[in-house]
Write a protein that binds this DNA or RNA. Structure first.
Length: 599
RNA sequence: GGUCCUAUGGUCAAGCGGUUAAGACACCGCCCUUUCACGGCGGUAACCCGGGUUCGAUUCCCGGUAGGAUCACCA
């Protein structure tokens, strides 16, 4: 078989060679001297979830905390993996960029990153989508067809790949047969022979007949010769961290890959003649990954654990193409405890609203809090670091893949809330006020109206935050609004009953006397002194301990008296310091609310 | 089913041949306190099972078990 002739038959329109593309996309200067190049490769389904954020965060940190010899940081770029045309959703790229930007993650390069001057290609459509930026584009896989095909052509001309005309029915039959015989499914070994052994004439005939076909990799399978591949000509599989070795285990050839998160991972070599180019001329993920990450000069591939099992395919592809392998970082899957089974399971799009990034925006979690929480499950030593450096910027933390857990972490809302309390405490009240209003405008418009007085809102949010032991009761916007809603008349309601120690008559009397003696200009101790007086006059204990010790001698204590006032002014029995609240509320409102209750 | 990954309290996790097996969250109790929150102190609670290796295994090896991942012209 003349493979060159076959390649020409299959790809007559392709005139560029791999060498041409190597020249168009030269190695990156920063990566050459140690900087890390990472990428996010989402498919444009429009759904971006916590797992994406988790991965993106790893990518971003890895790239941006690395530096080349001259101090230039690494590069983090966005590549859209839209080889599956069925899944494209309009506006998805904007959604991805904006969602991540909300969490403080931005790209240096790639799809939709439109920095002026350096764009080498445009985003699809003339609909005003931002243009792409960078010298390694196109950044949409759907636009890279000729590039992939040039490499496939080269593979075919070397006899490393071949066309396959198997129909869907034939494929199904083979699978059924394999399943019945309890064999591994797929096209490999003897199942591949039929297509592998097609003569040039047969192929030509099929093509003339218009039969659809795919291009498959001619896998070396177990027959791969370790002495004669990776180790040879230093620039192939033997990657930057020297991370693939072969090992014969009882006649089965294994690859051992050094994963930056998991350490050494051993798997049998690939023996499947996987599809690399679909009938449409578009590559499969496997092929696109290998070509793109090589040509775009990615140094670290961060992706979910679900890709681990296809690593042997990628290794063989890198080998066949003589590319240097990147360092792989296979992250653990985010898990959740299933309510029904009690088992850990992958967070699911359908069942778990907290998987969606929108959930956090809806509830009004601050992006910093989510980020901080993510880091606590991402790197086991982060919490320790945070305790030692409570005020340091999160980016000062030295993130390492070694400290990442390889087991799936359970998502813990409690922990998020706890982290959030501390994060919000460090954000100035004024900024928090803006955050609240922005959130409300989007999710609770009426509340946004209520909170329109920013000065007032700022004072409210700042209550008790500057003491030696500051309050930490602000967690997320929805919760915060519930927490402070009584400051706004339109949301003020009496939610609780007066304590049972206080009779209705006493309650009225307490409020009456409170109102009579109320002086808005009293300082806190003058104000409380008056409450003590009322307390004693009506037969309640001024010291709660006295009541506790001698419950028979008093009706109740100053705590109960205070609660009555609390309910009158706040509508609830639990709140921060009453005096402070009244100062913010203003005399008019205080008097009005109490009068209202006395009737 | 094949292959791979993982296995320390309810959760996240230190540990990397000898420890009273850290810490954080949650939970419970006490203290502080006019309520709540914060804070302080204390408490309940863990090395999946069975074999080896070793003077000694949570730690190393093998086997089970359990959970997860994956077996497409989807990524």
């Amino acid at each position: 078989m003349d493979y060159n002739k076959l390649a020409e038959l299959l790809f007559p329109q392709i005139d560029k060679t791999p060498e041409d593309y190597e020249a168009i996309y030269p190695p990156r200067a920063n990566a050459e001297s140690g900087a890390v190049i990472t990428r996010l490769g989402p498919s444009p389904t429009g759904f971006i979830h916590l797992g994406n954020l988790y991965g993106a965060f790893v990518d971003e940190r890895l790239a941006h905390q690395s530096k080349a010899a001259d101090g230039t940081p690494g590069t983090f770029y966005l590549r859209i993996e839209d080889t599956d045309d069925k899944r494209y959703v309009e506006g998805a790229v904007d959604t991805i960029i904006n969602s991540l930007k909300f969490f403080g993650i931005s790209f240096d390069e790639g799809a939709g990153c439109g920095a002026p001057g350096c764009a080498t290609d445009g985003a699809p459509g003339e609909d005003g989508t931002p243009t792409d930026a960078g010298d390694y584009g196109p950044y949409y896989q759907s636009q890279r067809g000729p590039i992939y095909q040039a490499f496939v052509k080269s593979l075919v001309s070397q006899g490393k790949a071949y066309p396959c005309f198997l129909t869907e029915e034939e494929l199904n039959d083979i699978r059924a047969q394999q399943e019945a015989a309890k064999e591994t499914t797929g096209i490999y070994g003897k199942y591949a022979e039929k297509s592998r052994n097609l003569s040039y004439e047969e192929i030509e005939e099929n093509i003339k007949a218009g039969k659809p076909y795919v291009i498959r990799l001619k896998s070396k399978g177990n027959a791969i010769d370790p002495a004669n591949c990776c180790m040879e000509n230093g620039a192939t599989c033997k990657g930057s961290s020297g991370n693939v070795t072969y090992q014969n285990r009882d006649g089965v050839m294994y690859i051992i890959v050094n994963d930056a998160i998991r350490g050494e991972v051993a798997m049998p070599c690939n023996d499947q003649d996987v599809v690399i180019l679909k009938a449409t001329g578009i590559p499969t993920y496997h092929f696109a990954h290998v070509i793109d990450d090589h040509l775009m000069r990615t140094t670290h591939v961060v992706r979910g654990e679900e890709w681990l099992m296809s690593l042997p395919i990628h290794v063989e592809l890198f080998e066949a193409l003589r590319f240097k392998m990147p360092t792989y970082c296979h992250t653990a899957v985010l898990m959740k405890l299933d309510d029904e089974s009690g088992n850990k399971r992958k967070l699911s799009k359908r069942k778990d609203p907290e998987l969606s990034l929108d959930y956090y925006r809806n509830e009004g979690y601050h992006p910093q809090a989510v980020k901080e929480y993510l880091l606590t499950i991402l790197n086991s030593n982060f919490e320790e670091w945070r305790m030692a450096n409570p005020d340091a910027d999160i980016d000062e933390f030295r993130f390492t893949t070694e400290k990442m857990s390889s087991a799936g972490a359970l998502f813990d809302l409690n922990k998020l809330n706890d982290v959030s309390k501390d994060v919000l405490l460090k954000i100035p009240a004024e900024e928090l006020a803006d955050f609240m209003v922005d959130w409300a405008k989007e999710f609770k418009p009426k509340a946004a109206e209520a909170m329109s007085d920013k000065e007032y809102l700022t004072k409210i949010l700042d209550i008790g935050r500057h003491d030696a032991k500051p309050r930490k009761d602000l967690i997320y916007a929805k919760q915060i609004f519930d927490f402070i809603s009584y400051f706004y008349d339109e949301y003020f309601v009496i939610e609780e009953r007066i304590p049972e120690q206080v009779s209705d008559e006493d309650a009225k009397e307490i409020l009456k006397r409170y109102l009579e003696t109320y002086d808005h200009s009293d300082d806190q101790s003058q104000w409380f002194e008056k409450i003590r007086t009322i307390t004693a006059d009506l037969g309640y204990a001024v010291k709660p301990k006295d009541y506790k010790k001698h419950p028979d001698e008093y009706k109740g204590s100053v705590a109960h008296v205070s609660t009555v006032i609390r309910i009158a002014v706040m509508g609830r029995s639990q709140s921060p310091d009453v005096w402070t609240i009244q100062q913010i509320l203003g005399e008019e409102k205080v008097r009005a609310r109490i009068s209202e209750l006395i009737g």
